[in-house]
Design a protein around this nucleic acid. Structure first.
Length: 220
DNA sequence: AAAACGAGCAACCGCGTGTTA
DNA sequence: ATAACACGCGGTTGCTCGTTT
């Protein structure tokens, strides 16, 4: 039913050349973002539209801030992750100049490791009990959260629902994580199927725990 | 000096969702 | 109402480069 996003034959893959970058930049400067499917042809690129989009968003966009993450950014990522889980695009949306891919990579390569070394479960931001023991079978939620030993460990799953509302032994509490917050969404792009999409996704995320008091995050 | 290893990052893939015809 | 399309997201892969042995 679903066709591949582009015909795989005849499209380049792998690292982008300078010429390809320049073509993409020139085209988007002239015509703006969007219509990714038709863009490659129009721009003279032998690339899949998805690949063009990714390259632009993660690397070529002029407002991208490159380089190391600051301590404030790292703290913010940790706090947002405690609330939102692996919703990298939402998290990146609160970090000007950072992309979801960059945030995700930074989390996986730095923050995650750091939290683990501190004895903190990066998936639910709780202190691990030492020694780590497999949870009792009857405790479903516990088994879902002690995920270091499972294959589903990175499921964004219920960070909103489970991690936010239970405050006992939450490390984030000791890290001065102010959970009495309200999520302030960045204003969606004006042209914006994306804005609408993001908003609706976010609303869904908020509604996950709608039967319970939803903690709010006032960030800006 | 060279091989082995690990970390970091760019890019790809598959799926979910909103839109359109 | 629904199938096809277009896009965005999150997970994963694989390459590159620095460090260790």
């Amino acid at each position: 039913m679903r066709k591949p996003c582009c015909d795989k034959e005849g499209t380049n893959k792998g690292a982008w050349s300078k010429q390809e970058d320049q073509k993409l930049i020139d085209y988007i400067r002239a015509h703006g973002e969007g219509c990714w499917r038709s863009l490659p042809k129009a721009a003279g690129l032998d690339r899949c539209g998805k690949s063009c989009r990714l390259r632009w968003i993660n690397y070529l966009r002029p407002d991208i801030k490159r380089g190391n993450f600051g301590q404030d950014e790292e703290d913010l990522i940790i706090k947002l992750h405690a609330l939102l889980g692996n919703r990298w695009s939402l998290i990146a949306g609160r970090l000007p100049g950072r992309t979801d891919n960059e945030v995700k990579n930074y989390w996986n390569s730095h923050i995650r490791r750091k939290l683990i070394s501190m004895g903190i479960d990066p998936n639910n931001h709780r202190l691990n009990q030492i020694p780590l023991r497999p949870p009792p079978k009857s405790d479903v939620s516990a088994s879902a959260t002690s995920s270091e030993s499972t294959n589903n460990e990175c499921k964004p799953s219920q960070p909103l629902k489970s991690s936010v509302n239970k405050t006992t032994d939450r490390v984030s509490d000791s890290l001065d994580l102010n959970l009495d917050l309200t999520i302030a969404f960045p204003s969606p792009p004006a042209n914006s199927a994306e804005g609408k999409r993001r908003l609706s996704k976010t609303m869904m995320a908020k509604q996950v725990g709608s039967s319970e008091p939803v903690p709010t995050l006032l960030l800006f």
